[in-house]
Write a protein that binds this DNA or RNA. Sequence first.
DNA 1: TCGTCTGGCTAACCGC
DNA 2: GCGGTTAGCCAGACGA
Lengths: 94, 94, 94, 94
Amino acid sequence: MVADTQSNESVDQSDAIGAVARDQLKSIIARIERLEEEKKALADDIKEVYAEAKANGYDTKVLRKVISLRKQDSNERAEQEALLELYLGALGDL
Amino acid sequence: MVADTQSNESVDQSDAIGAVARDQLKSIIARIERLEEEKKALADDIKEVYAEAKANGYDTKVLRKVISLRKQDSNERAEQEALLELYLGALGDL
Amino acid sequence: MVADTQSNESVDQSDAIGAVARDQLKSIIARIERLEEEKKALADDIKEVYAEAKANGYDTKVLRKVISLRKQDSNERAEQEALLELYLGALGDL
Amino acid sequence: MVADTQSNESVDQSDAIGAVARDQLKSIIARIERLEEEKKALADDIKEVYAEAKANGYDTKVLRKVISLRKQDSNERAEQEALLELYLGALGDL
DNA sequence: TCGTCTGGCTAACCGC
DNA sequence: GCGGTTAGCCAGACGA
């Protein structure tokens, strides 16, 4: 008769945390690793676009600055809306 | 006579770099911004998974360490394969 | 006659790194601690102003948001100037 | 006749909250921004000291640890003194 | 007092 | 190899 891993969680150390928890952990790791792979792929795509732009004579430094400024703009717009929400909320309290 | 934007790229400042170049530039910006949005979405997803794991009692710091170690491992494995390729290539030269 | 700490740097562990280095170290520590004290005093002053404002009926959350937005504004202005510098530099290369 | 901003707080939207409140608000903002500037200047000074120390061969990580430990110590000492005060006060009640 | 959350700091990554 | 940029960590402040 073989050892039943269901009836004795201490059969070996790999079972110390329980089969369920182990599977959950494996799932978490797998999901994160999957997402990070995709994220890296996108980062590589972005690099590629910059490389292509550079090959076409664009200054990547300027390009990055422009992108960065545009991002700041949109962030600020978002924050201004958040401020407006705050104002409206404050008025509601009056 | 009306200025012809085709024959004179200096008609106004917005045309100073040429309509083609401008469109190309806009395309580059748009592509990068699109990719960065997607990248950010993935980063948010990853944070979400960590948050969920934390809610289930996992220590995110340890979790991150595990992910990091596994990445190192795979990098090392990749390096070893590259080294093997190198050896095989060298053998081919004999 | 007592041991001369100048002639034997190993007399005790506190001399292991040399009197000069020790003094230098003490000076560094002292300067940093002094600066951090002043920094903390300012942080406390800021808290006080917020508390006073709150007592006068201002919503500190809104206040903080306003301050934050103004800071973003000035950062952005600085970055736009940096971008202009980049442009000018790029023109210089033509 | 020219509108008198003193007699009518609703002359324009910038006066909607009253000139006094507006000035008060401006003062609050100004004070906080001033203090934050000074705070930032100090933070920069601190960084500078660390940079200088690093240039002299000190390990900034260790340095920071030392500072941190000393701060803990002084906090603990302060707590013990507070405790002592408490005891003395209790004795006074006897 | 606890939990949440923002802001500052540190360490890693990428391009030059 | 260095400088700049970005993600993660942490402490400190606010609200419940």
